[in-house]
Every structure is written in structure tokens, then in C-alpha cells.
């Protein structure tokens, strides 16, 4: 699929294309708000208050809504982030001391385009360039934790305040966890070959030379690649959300995980760590559970644990980090997420 050949190269033509696509997107979004009521209630004659109808409506409406939101958000963020690269980030972090370095690394982890599948070469590249281990870890924690998909979805579903809280919390966890790990002197638990790796060759940073049409092309490619990867998670997440929405008794979750249970955040994080999904798959669940009265802090903590710590990523990192460091890594990050959950339950209540 090549979009780039269909975009005019003149500024005017390009602007017209972008505006036309944006208008089509907005039209579909509006249509999604109208069509399901008509179809289910008027055309099929289903009882609008029946549980089946409510669940079905939730599923159909949310599937289209989330797919549209993700398409728009991923596209805009990919184009914006195409001006940043891992190479530039490393150059910015080289020679930084711990402390300031951790803060910068966590911030750059948010804005740098980075796939956790590159965690290992990036780790080696950073450490070989003299970036301290703790600072490198701050980057690697922040990158998946403060996720562009999650930011976009939170913003549209829960508003500015919750989104800001999420970003602030994620960055803070990454700063503190990286700093603590650095303090613990974890170098001895890093596989020795990392320190022996000599960086040869030249760095490629082809991001500066891209034309704007190429950046648009990258945005379109990224949308296609992410949607192709996450749609099963998305459908399962929305399906579960729909079932909870229609069938779960009002007080089922609040009784066990509501504000009355002091262990709710801890349990939510422990359940979230081994679960492997992504922000897009977890968000429909978060929305449904929030409707049922679960506090936002508990839900954000659950989401962060699912997104930040996953078994596949730990298995990847095992190639460069020894087991004691991996265990410490999980423990420190999990502790940070738990703290954030309790703090938000206090603040956002």
C-alpha cells in the first residue's frame, strides 16, 4: 500500500487532500453516533432497554468509535514523532548524569518513536555510548508506559485532567524507578557482552531528510500496522466491556474492588503484570469498569501494569539483563504503579 503516490506534491493539493480525509473521518465519527440506535431500535425493533440490546449497542458503537479514534490519533502522532528518532535521543542523553538524565530520559521516552521490539539493540546502543544504566532504564520504562494510543483514548473518553494525571504519573514512575535501579548498582546484573560491544559503522538518522509526503506515508503505514496487530485485543476488550456493561450487577465490582477495599490497587496491579495486552485492548474494559463505579486510580494502575510490564518484553530483555535485575525491575516499577494508584484514588475521588 503506497499512499505517497496519491498525495499531490504541491502545498495546496496536499492541504486539500488532508482536509478532505479529515472531513471524511469526522463524517464517519458523526454517523457512528446515529446509525446504531436507528438500526437496532427502529429497523430491527429491539427493545432499547433490554440487556442484549445494550451490550450489542456498546459493542458496535465502541468498536467503530475506537477504530476511528485510533486511526486519527496514531496518524497524527506518527507524523509528529517522525521528527524525533532514537539516534537523536541517545545523542541528547550521552554524557548526562543520573538525576537530570533520568528526567530527560523519561520525557524523551514519551516523544521518541520506539517499538519495544527494539528494546535490546537500543539498550546496548545507549549503554555502549556511555549513557548510565539507570538513565537507559528510565527511557525503556517510560516508552511503553506513557503510550500514545493510551493518551489519545484517555483524552477523548475521560478528558484532560485524567490524561494529564496519567502522563505525569507514567513519567514520574519512569524517573524514580530508573533512578532507584541506577542507585542499586545493577551493572553487575547486566550481561557482560553489552559492555564489550564496540559501536562500529555509522549512525543512520534518515529522519531529517524525509519529505512531508513521506511523513504522511509513514503515518498511514503505522495506522495499518498497529490496527492489524491489535484488532484481536480490541475486539476481545470491547466484547468483555460489552458483557460487563450489559450483565454485571451494579455493585459487583464496587463490592470487591471499590473505594472500600484498601487492597484493590495492589490486587489490580498483580493481576495486570502477567496480562499481556495493549492500551487499545484494555481501554474498553477501563471504560466499562469505570461506568460500574470503580475508582480511576485503581483502573489507571491496572492499565499501567498491563501495558508497562509484560512477559514477552521481559523475555526479550533477558538477553541483556540477568534474572535478579529483571525481578528488581518488575518490583520497582510495580511499586511505583501501586503508589500512583493509591495517590490518584485520593486525589481524583
Amino acid at each position: 500500500m503506497s499512499v505517497v503516490e496519491h498525495i499531490p506534491t504541491t502545498t495546496r493539493g496536499r492541504l486539500a487532500t488532508v482536509v478532505a480525509v479529515a472531513a471524511a473521518w469526522a463524517g464517519l465519527y458523526w454517523l457512528n453516533g446515529q446509525v446504531w440506535d436507528r438500526l437496532l431500535d427502529d429497523l430491527l425493533g429491539l427493545d432499547p432497554d433490554a440487556r442484549v440490546t445494550e451490550s450489542l449497542h456498546f459493542f458496535l458503537f465502541d468498536t467503530v468509535k475506537i477504530a476511528l479514534l485510533l486511526t486519527g490519533i496514531i496518524f497524527v502522532i506518527t507524523v509528529a514523532r517522525s521528527y524525533m528518532s532514537v539516534e537523536r535521543t541517545r545523542a541528547l542523553l550521552g554524557g548526562r548524569r543520573e538525576g537530570v538524565g533520568n528526567v530527560m530520559a523519561a520525557g524523551l521516552g514519551v516523544v521518541t518513536p520506539f517499538c519495544s521490539c527494539s528494546a535490546v539493540p537500543a539498550f546496548i546502543g545507549f549503554v555502549a555510548a556511555g549513557v548510565p544504566i539507570g538513565v537507559t532504564l528510565s527511557f525503556l520504562i517510560a516508552s511503553p508506559l506513557v503510550n500514545e494510543v493510551a493518551i489519545g483514548l484517555l483524552l477523548t473518553m475521560f478528558g484532560f485532567e485524567v490524561t494529564l494525571a496519567y502522563v505525569g504519573a507514567g513519567v514520574s514512575v519512569a524517573i524514580v524507578a530508573g533512578w532507584v535501579l541506577g542507585r542499586l548498582g545493577v551493572e553487575r546484573w547486566v550481561e557482560p557482552f553489552v559492555f564489550e560491544t564496540r559501536l562500529g559503522g555509522q549512525l543512520v538518522d534518515d529522519t531529517a531528510a524525509l519529505t512531508f509526503n513521506q511523513r504522511l506515508q509513514m503515518g498511514a503505514e503505522e495506522v495499518a500496522s498497529i490496527l492489524r496487530r491489535i484488532w484481536p485485543y480490541l475486539l476481545v476488550g470491547i466484547g468483555l466491556g460489552a458483557v460487563i456493561h450489559g450483565w454485571a450487577p451494579e455493585d459487583l465490582f464496587t463490592r470487591y474492588a471499590g473505594p472500600g477495599n484498601p487492597f484493590a490497587v495492589l490486587v489490580a496491579v498483580l493481576i495486570g503484570i502477567p496480562l499481556y495486552s495493549n492500551a487499545a485492548g484494555i481501554m474498553p474494559l477501563v471504560v466499562a469498569l469505570h461506568d460500574k463505579g470503580l475508582p480511576m486510580g485503581t483502573l489507571l494502575a491496572f492499565m499501567m501494569a498491563v501495558v508497562a510490564l509484560s512477559l514477552p518484553e521481559l523475555i526479550l530483555l533477558r538477553r541483556v539483563l540477568r534474572v535478579p535485575l529483571l525481578v528488581t525491575y518488575v518490583a520497582v516499577v510495580a511499586a511505583g504503579i501501586v503508589a500512583v494508584g493509591y495517590l490518584f484514588n485520593l486525589l481524583l475521588a
Binding site: E87, C115, F126, A128, T197, R198, L199, G200, G201
Partner: peptide, 15 residues
């Protein structure tokens, strides 16, 4: 091999 990949100065795969 990760060491070899890093040896090329590559930090984002695939390259």
C-alpha cells in the same frame, strides 16, 4: 545476533 546488530550502530530494528 544482538551484539552484531549493535556493532553496526543500529538501535532500531529491523535495519
Amino acid at each position: 545476533d544482538y551484539a552484531e546488530i549493535a556493532g553496526y550502530g543500529v538501535m532500531a530494528t529491523p535495519a
